[in-house]
Amino acid sequence: MPHRTCRCVVGVLSLSRMNNYLDFEQPILELEGKIAELKRMDDPQLDLRDELKRLEEKAEKLLKQTYGKLTPWQKVQVARHPARPRFGKVLSTLFPDLVTLAGDRCFGEDAAIIGGLATFEGYTVMVIGQERGADLQSRLKHNFGMAKPEGYRKAQRMMKLAEQYGLPVLTFIDTPGAYPGVGAEERGQAEAIARCIDVSLGLTVPVLATVIGEGGSGGAIALAAADRVLMFEHAVYSVISPEGCASILWRSADHAAEAAEALKITAQDLLRLGVIDAIVPEPLGGAHRHPDAALHSLRLALNEQLGLTLKHNPAERRYQRGEKFLAMGRKAA
């Protein structure tokens, strides 16, 4: 697989800044810096092809090694990577004909949760997801993916509409958590999340949820009470952020890596625990290196999972969804 290279390498530092390398990617970064430098030399008298090939193979091996055994805390960083494809990218790639819907018909419009009607595999579907934004301006607009009650009530409205028209519901989760604020509490953040779970579990249409980045606590499960819950290979899903857990149980956020380990937040752990149903493979080096390949993988997974949920009749589907959640944790994994 080709590597992302940078033609205008000035030095290791600027490359790091441009490509948003993570700390543990440092050795890969250095190799890729060397490769880029060699390519830049482009001296016809020197045959660098062998050396280049050797370095590229080495870089790929290193990438494979690193990403093959990411620690839970490293996965948190990958899941939060600024270049990771966000929900907006999912929408534009997988649902280009999206007709957005807005507002909760109670109080307002919340840009942390967006979505609407679209076509997928020939079906009209309801797409709902959390957007955390790609740059500072859009992050502010979408409140970093932290929804307020309006967002969860909008989601409920969209789910009910989906039920009314027999539309499969596809949700995409990427949030640090529901927004903790005075206004959010006043307008019933807890009730909005509770009712969202209630509505979702009551649907008879298929519900597919995918954790594409960070699945943060109650704000995440509000959209993930689904027939099939999918997770990107390096996404995380947790009851509390590792930092939050560490500051409570270890009395210091410095222990976040330990907390991440103990909480069992990776897709691989959650599949083992029976909490999620499938893992969506990411391209080598994470979705942030090859967003398009990641989204292609997502499309295939959704297609397959939708097919599975369509096998049941509506009442059965709803019943099975409930039974799936009830079975969780009853037997030792």
Partner: peptide
């Protein structure tokens, strides 16, 4: 709230208890 020592399984109780209500 949720018992974080049970990790994600404590979060799943939000769905499981809602099924009881239903």
């Amino acid at each position: 709230g949720a018992r974080m020592q049970e990790g994600i399984l404590s979060l799943m109780q939000m769905a499981r208890t809602t099924i009881g209500v239903q």
